[in-house]
Simulated scan of single mutants.
Amino acid sequence: MDFAGKDKATYVKETFNAIAGRYDLMNSLMSLGMDKRWRRLAVQKVGAKPSMHILDVCCGTGQLSMELGQAVGNHGSVTGLDFSAKMLEVAQKSLLQASNLGNIQFIQGNAMELPFEDQSFDGVTVGWGLRNLPDLHQGLREMVRTVKPGGKVVSLDMAKPSLPGFKQAYWLYFEKLIPLMGKIWANKASAYQYLHDSAREFPAQEELARIFAECGLENTSYHNLAGGVVAIVSGTRPKE
């Protein structure tokens, strides 16, 4: 993948800073409006309940964090962490316009070195973020470190459909149409070319579940959405 002569972390940060203002619109367009339902399913999968404390890594514009906030209520808390200042600005503006979302805070930080003590959270989520990490295994190990025994780590991200015919049509759509949409709606075709390229290189859902296990989680599994275009992958930190 071409990062224009930059390391992946720098390239990704600059890319998401550039598209922050249109990120939510593009997500809705690309998913045909299904992204909100997918986030709700991820909230269910992590087991978010009132009074829980949940970490949302690579929170971006905070849409998943705010879904989690509804689940944990005013006696719980959600911490959304991202390294893109522009994405966090959008998240904070959205939070100010919302209500009844529990105790949510957004902080800027590095998913490779999470600024939290061991076993700080009842659950950890990451939405469309793992494929952007410079080291997938290190990022997952950090999430495992910060979740309590018995808590879940849940990823919602692009996956790889396998149905013949549909698979070919999907990748053609992704390769040709998505960058064009990015150029029209976000004035940044290269960012959405990166989305295609990173999805191509990202492990398939079956492989990602195996990597979850390698990083210390048990009962790992995946759940396909939209024919395997997107998948929820999860695992539980073993009880000590």
Rank of each mutant, 00 (worst) to 15 (best):
A199K: 09
P161Q: 04
V154D: 04
D157F: 10
D197G: 04
R141M: 14
K183M: 14
R141V: 13
S198P: 01
R200N: 11
P149M: 08
R200Q: 14
L140P: 03
K148L: 13
H196R: 15
L195W: 11
I178Q: 02
M143F: 07
L180N: 08
K188C: 13
A169V: 14
P164E: 07
K152G: 00
P161D: 04
K148F: 08
S155D: 08
A189T: 09
R200K: 15
K148C: 12
H137G: 00
S198F: 01
L177C: 12
S190W: 07
N132L: 01
S190D: 14
K152C: 02
M158E: 05
Y194R: 08
L130G: 05
N132R: 04
E175H: 15
G151S: 07
H137R: 13
L180I: 14
L156I: 07
P164Q: 03
V154G: 07
G182S: 06
Q193K: 15
L133Y: 00
L156V: 05
K188W: 00
G182M: 05
N187V: 01
A191I: 12
A191R: 10
D197M: 02
Y194V: 06
P134D: 02
L133T: 11
L133V: 10
A199Y: 10
P134Y: 00
L180D: 08
L172K: 15
Q168C: 06
S162Y: 02
D157N: 11
L133D: 00
Y194A: 06
H137D: 12
A169R: 13
P149L: 10
V153I: 06
F174S: 15
K176L: 12
K160R: 14
A186G: 06
F174K: 12
Q193Y: 11
N187F: 02
P179E: 04
G182L: 03
L156E: 04
V147A: 09
K152P: 00
K148A: 10
G139Q: 03
A159F: 01
K152I: 01
T146G: 02
M143C: 14
S162D: 13
S190L: 10
N187A: 11
G182E: 02
K183F: 14
P161S: 05
A189V: 11
R141F: 08
Y194T: 08
R145T: 02
P161I: 04
K148P: 12
